[in-house]
Nucleic acid binder design. Structure first.
Lengths: 116, 116
DNA sequence: CTGTATCCTCAGAGATACTG
DNA sequence: CAGTATCTCTGAGGATACAG
């Protein structure tokens, strides 16, 4: 696999998670949690209705989230992770472990090393 | 760990990789490769000089890439991954494995399920 | 309750030109 | 060779209003 092909493949994976709200949504659903639209709004107070709806649609069409509509009055819509979405958890965990391995601060990091 | 805290932590990790060029750069350096500025330009022909320099600086200040300047004429600058940067490889691999597990296409995926 | 529609802003990507 | 400087422009995201 060439560096470019690998970068593209990983990039496509990351694209599914990019944006300011996707991770917030995902982490509120990890562990099999099932939330209504209004519950997600409360869980993520900073998000606008437009962005919440938009990102949920994206997550759904990308296969990470399942949306279930109940034909009731008043309307009810529930969101949960798909199995595939749930299976992302360990990978995000490994990302977390990686950040923990970051070196605190290189002593001479402010200036690039200069060899001669 | 709350969903919000986890989302923020993972978001910070992803931020280190976001942008159109960072992964391209990273994958060209994985495996201990050492490349000069001009070699990176050739490896990623679509990138402008501005973006390449800018993203390299970011990767460097984030601790993923090490930059080594040789005080020669003509100038020579080499880039390689730090140990921490190199240690990201398995995680990106697991991301790749994850995408491979994606379900091909849900039969009734175009319309959301409607319960009653 | 669960969304669309519209308008607006502003960080960041890209093109181009220039420099030690 | 290895970069800055400057300009432009796009599009993600936000505010607000409206709708089934």
């Amino acid at each position: 696999m060439t560096p470019d092909a690998a970068a593209e493949a990983v990039g496509e994976a990351l694209a599914l998670l990019e944006g300011r709200w996707k991770l917030r949504i995902l982490f509120n659903l990890f562990g099999g949690k099932v939330l209504r639209y209004s519950e997600l709004e409360r869980a993520i107070p900073e998000v606008s209705q437009k962005m919440l709806a938009q990102q949920l649609r994206r997550l759904e069409s990308d296969g990470l989230v399942r949306r279930e509509v109940f034909g009731e009055v008043p309307p009810r819509v529930e969101y949960r992770l798909t199995e595939w979405g749930q299976s992302l958890c360990p990978t995000l965990d490994s990302l977390l472990q990686w950040t923990a391995r970051r070196v605190p601060a290189l002593s001479g990091a402010s200036e690039a090393s200069v060899a001669d």
